[in-house]
Write a protein that binds this DNA or RNA. Sequence first.
RNA 1: GCGAGAGUGGCGGAAUGGUAGACGCGACGGCCUCAAAAGCCGUUGUCCGCAAGGGCAUGCCGGUUCGAGUCCGGCCUCUCGCACCA
Length: 866
Amino acid sequence: MDDQPARYDPAEAEPRWQAAWETRGCFRAGDNAARPKYYVLEMFPYPSGRIHMGHVRNYTMGDVVARYKRARGFSVLHPMGWDAFGLPAENAARDRRVSPAEWTYSNIAAMRGQLKAMGLSLDWARELATCDASYYVHEQRMFLDMLDHDLAYRKEAAVNWDPVDQTVLANEQVIDGRGWRSGAAVEQRQLTQWFFRITAFAEDLLRSLDTLDRWPEKVRLMQKNWIGRSEGLRVRFDLVESDGTLWPEPLEIYTTRGDTLFGASFCAVAPDHPLAATAAARDPAIAAFVEECRRAGTSVATLETAEKKGVETGLSAVHPFVPGRMLPVYVANFILMEYGTGAIFGCPAHDQRDLDFARKYGLPVRLVVAPRDMTPEAMSVGDEAFTEDGVLIHSDFLDGLEVETAKEAVAARLEAQGRGERMVNYRLRDWGVSRQRYWGCPIPVIHCEACGVVPVPRADLPVRLPDDVRFDRPGNPLDHHPTWKHVACPQCSAPARRETDTFDTFVDSSWYFARFCSPHAADQPVERAAADRWMPVDQYIGGVEHAILHLLYSRFFTRAMRQIGYVGLDEPFAGLFTQGMVIHETYRDANGQWLYPEQVATRDGRPVHGDSGAPVTIGPAEKMSKSRCNVVDPEAIIAQYGADTARWFMLADTPPERDSEWTAAGVEGAWRFVQRVWRLIHEVADALPPAGAAGSSTDAGGASLALRQAAHRAIAAVTEDIEAFRFNRGVARIHELVNAIGAAQGAMDGQPAPAVLREALETLVLLIGPLMPHLAEEAWAALGHATLVAETAWPAADPTLVQSGEITIAVQVNGKRRAEVTVPRDAAQGALEQAALALDPVRRAMEGRPARKVIVVPNRIVNVVV
RNA sequence: GCGAGAGUGGCGGAAUGGUAGACGCGACGGCCUCAAAAGCCGUUGUCCGCAAGGGCAUGCCGGUUCGAGUCCGGCCUCUCGCACCA
C-alpha cells in the first residue's frame, strides 16, 4: 500500500483556480451602483521582461486589499497596465536589432503570464499599455487641451542635458548633478522646450497636502519641501556706474530677510543673469568667470566643495534706505538663476554664505540683529553668521523691533516707496516634458516657417510613431528619419516640420489611473461618468522612490484634467501606501567575485561555494540587483513552491513599509505552513458535518467554547490588521488560529463538537482567502463547498466570543510583577484588590508592610504600593 | 548643514502608559524511521540557584508616573530625503 502522506500540489491546483476565477469573471469591476466602490491600484510596471521580487511584494499587498474589499461587499476596481515607453526599449533595439515595439510587446506578454501565475485578482479586460496609439492618442488630445488652457507652453531655457542618453532631463531627474538613469554628469544647454505649467498650481498642490490624511507623513513632507514655498520681498535697487551714471534698469533681488536690509554690504547676481551677460560683454574677465561657472556648475564635486567666488561688475547698487551707501554688485557662483530673481543683496552678519563671500573679498560685516539677552557691544561676528531671531540694531527705523515685525515694517515702507513688494516664491519650477527620444509619445505640433508652432488638428490624431527607424547613431531617431518629420502645415499647407521631441514618460504615468476608469473610451481620454464613479483611487500602493516625481505630476495632471473637464476632483489618490524594498544577502568568493544565492552552500556551518567548496563571504542584505547577483527570480520560486507560498512569505516576514529580507529558510517556512493548513483540513474534512452546518453548535463544552473564541478573535484581529496594512500581524493571528485548531484536535480533555470544528476551519479558510487565494479555494472545496472563496463574504466576528468571561491580570508590588490572578471579566475593584492581596507571592513581596495604596485598573492590572 | 524615521532575544518582529519578547525563523533535546525526508512533542532573553525562587534586561543619561519599550529633556548610532533656495 502506497501510504505516502498526500501533499498539496500548487503546480496543479493554482492554474485550476485561476481558470475558475476567470471563467466566473470574479474580478471584473462591477458597475453595480448598489455596492460602494473601491479602487485599489498598484503602481504599474515598466515592461522590462520579467517581474522581480519588488513586483511580487507590491502586487501581493494590493491583491490582499482588493480581495478583502470584495469580500466586504465593495465593488472593486483593480486594474493592471504597462508603463511601456522609455529608453531601455531603444537600447534593446540598438543592441539586439529588434524594434522597440516588438521588444516591449513581447516583454509585456511574458510579464502578463508571470503576473497571472501569481493569482492576482485583476480585471484584465482593462489592461492598457502607454505605448499603444489607443492610449497615447488621448495623451496628445490632452496636450492640445492643455495648450488651450494655457497649461502647456514653449520657451527657451537652460536645460539639463544628459550627454550619455542624449536627452533633456527634468530637474527632478537630476540627482546630485547626474542623470537619474545614465548616471552621467549633466550639462547645461539652451534649448527650446515644452513645459507644463505645474507652478500654476504650486499653492494648491502645497495646501492640499494637508487634506491627504491617508498619505504617509513622510511623503507629504517631501512634497512640501520640493514645492518649497517661502515668503519674502522683491526689492529694486537703482544701479549706477563707477562714474555715477544711472543704469537704465534697476536690479531686482529676492530676499526672505528684508529685516536685515540695513546690514547689506553687497549685491550679487547669478552667472546666467542678464546683467551678468551685459557685464560680460564689456569685460573679458567677467566673461571668463561666467564661462567657468557654467562648466563647473554641473560637476558634482565642485558643487559640494565650491568656494564662494565672484567678480565685480563695476556697477554699484544704491541702498534704498541709505542713499549714500553704495553696494558693489558682483557676479557670484553661489547665486541660482532659477530661484527668486537670480539676484540677492548680501548681509554677511546674518547669512553664512554672504559671510564667507564678504570675508574673502574684504566687504563690511554690519551687525543688525542681536540676541535679546545680549548688548550690541558684546556681539561680534567671527566666522559664523548669526542667523537666529533677535532684536534689530543699527537699523534706523527698525531699531528695537523683533525680526518678524521688522520684516513687516521694511515691506510696508518699500511698497509705499514703490521700490519693492511682498512676494511668495516657490522652489518648484515648471515641468519640462520634451525628450529627444524615439520611444515615447510624439508631441502633436508642427513647426511652420510662416505660421509658427501649429497644433496638429484633432482630426489628424494620433500622431503615430513610425516603425521603420534606425538606432545606429546617437541622438533622436525621429529626427533622423528620412520622411516622418516632413509634413504640410495644417494652416497654410506649406512644407513644414513635425516636432520630433516626445514626451517625458512621466507624462504617460500621470493620468493612467484615470484612464483605467474607462479604458476603451475611443473619443476621449476619460469618460466623465466612469471617472465620477471610480475616482479617486482609494488605495494606491508603490515604492517610496516615487514620492516626489510621479505623485506630484499625477496631482498636477488631475488638476489640469479637472480644469479641462475630464474629472471632477483634484486629488487622484485618497490613500497612499509606500512599501519597502525586497533585499537579500550578498555573497562573494575569495577573489571578491559576486555569487548568486544558488551558488552558495553551507558546509559545517560555513558558507562555501557549492561547486568548489571554497569559502564564501556573506555581505549585508541589500536591494536586489543583478550587478550584485543577490537576486531571486519570482518565476523560479513560483515554479518550486507556488504563488501562495511566495505571497505568504512576503506578507508574513516584515511590516510592509519596511525593507524585507528574502531568505531561503523563510520561504521554506511559508511552504511548510501551506502544507500544514492543507493537512489540517484534509485530515478531518470527511468527518465533519456537511457544509452549511457550521457554527450551529449548542454544545457549551470547554473545548468547543475555546475553539469558537479562538476563531472569532482571529476574525476580529485579522480584519483590523488588514484594514491597517499590518499584514505581518494578521499572519501571526492566523498562525494562532491554526495552533488553536491543532491543540483542540489533540486535546485529551474533550474534543470540540464537529460543527464547531467546521466553523473554525471555515473561518481559517476565509481569513486566508485574500492572502493565499489558491490554497483557500482548494480547502474550501475540500470542506464540501461548491462556491468560490472569491465570491464568499468576509466572516463576521461575534463580539460575545471575542471577549472571554475570565481574564488573567498581573499583580504588581511597587511596580514589579509578582503574581497573576484569574478573575471574572469586569470584576469589582474591591474583589480584585482582595484577591491580589491574598496571593502568596504578593504577601512575600510586601514583607509584612501594610499596603499604602492599591491601584486597581479593571481588567488590566493591580499594583500594590507599600 | 536642514528635515524625517528607526534603535527590543541568535534573526524577522509583537506589545490602547498596565504581565516585554505574541507569531515566525533558526538552534537544541526527544518521538517516529533500518536510515533519511516529512511530521509530531518539548526547550530556547540573560545571570545566580539542585530547586523553590530571585536579580538584570527594550541604544546611553536623566525626568514625569503607583507603573515607561511607549510620555518629556539631553546625548549616541544607523537609515532615508533635501541640500549654495537668499
